[in-house]
Simulated scan of single mutants.
Amino acid sequence: MPDSFESIAVLGLGLIGGSIVQALAHGGYRVTGYDPDPIEAAAARGTGYTVAASAAEAVAGADLVVLAMPLPALDGALAAIEKQLAPGTVVTDVGTLKEPVLRAVRSRLPGVRFVGGHPLAGTERSGFLAGHPLLFRDAPWALVLEPDTDLQAWLSLAVLLCDLGAKPVPTTAAEQDAAVARMIGLPHVLAEALALTGLHGGQLGLSLAAGSYTSGSRVARTRPELVATWCDGNPALVGALDDAIATLTACRDTLAEGGSVRTLAEAGYRARMQWEDREFGPVDLPADPERLRQHGRDGGWITAVVEKDGPGLGELRLLGMRPVR
């Protein structure tokens, strides 16, 4: 079976990092947090969690380090811990974009057992006190499996994430970034545009704002510097915007000619319902990286890592789910 983690360090105690600390502590894991912001550190310490005085102190003796700081702070964090990591330590992260993190870690910590990660969970709120130990329950969690990823480290993280109730999704950094361009970056850009368009319509429109406006622009309440880290440096977002602009332009031209939005509304309805109405079935997979990556491409995730009896006694298998319709 994959290795279990005895001591875990989480660097960054915002919404995601703080929720990881809480989830791990509630799950019985020994976890130490750290945040350079004294307010976040005090919030975690004041609610009963172990918080170190420095990043180096937090990672001392840890066999898993979780990088949960914003992307601009990543390089400084790596510099602070590079000489403190014990041999064999597994390092993961929770950033939205995976390729920039992968490049930074390979540059600063060559040879480290790094497995990029991205939990698809959260709200527009931020900070440790916005976190919750059940934030990741049933949430997809992209878990990067590159050709040079340490498979044992990947499997150990998959076990941990399943234990937290998350749904590990095997993927590559490039494929993950292309997907989140459409599912995270684009929705945030559209929400900002909607918020601005509504504001420019005047006070009457704002007083009449109801569910369509408030739901569509909800994530515009997210801290702008975080939105930038989720969007900047992702070439795939340009292509996603091109597709959205083409759709909006066609709609605009149809209306200008006296036509109807019904065709677009019907297509959008079918797309949304196709997503909502998916049905899933169980799968049994070998611990083979390419099979696992294909499972992720097919929309699947991992539910458990087990040893099965049979001709290959003690053979490691991964149970999962994927769409069947």
Rank of each mutant, 00 (worst) to 15 (best):
R278A: 11
E146G: 10
L226K: 00
S7G: 06
P147S: 07
H132L: 08
A193I: 00
D298K: 08
L208Q: 14
T50H: 10
T123Q: 00
A60C: 07
R297D: 14
A246Q: 12
G202D: 08
D138S: 04
S107N: 09
W230Y: 13
L120G: 11
S7F: 09
E225Q: 12
A41G: 10
P110E: 05
R221K: 14
V115N: 06
G46S: 12
S107H: 08
E6Q: 15
L11R: 03
A174N: 02
F128M: 05
R272M: 13
E257W: 00
H200E: 15
L24A: 05
V324G: 06
S260K: 01
L319V: 09
L248R: 01
D309E: 14
A158W: 05
A130E: 02
A56W: 01
R137N: 13
L135M: 13
D3Y: 00
A73R: 07
H188N: 03
L134D: 15
I302H: 10
R293E: 10
R317V: 06
T171Q: 03
L109W: 06
G27A: 15
E276M: 13
S156N: 00
M69L: 11
G131P: 09
V159R: 11
V238K: 10
M69F: 05
L67G: 07
V219A: 06
Q152V: 10
A79S: 08
E257P: 00
L206F: 06
G12I: 07
Y49C: 13
R272V: 13
S212T: 11
S217F: 08
W230V: 12
V324R: 13
L264G: 02
R223S: 14
G300S: 08
R297F: 01
T47S: 15
A166V: 09
L196D: 13
G310I: 03
D148T: 14
V51N: 07
A267C: 10
A121F: 00
T214G: 06
M183C: 12
R30C: 10
L71D: 08
V21D: 02
P170Y: 08
A25I: 01
G76A: 11
A220M: 05
L204Y: 12
E266D: 13
I16M: 14
R108M: 03
R137C: 13
G88R: 09
I184Q: 15
A250W: 00
R293Q: 05
R30Y: 02
A121Q: 02
F5Q: 06
D242C: 09
L71M: 12
D288G: 04
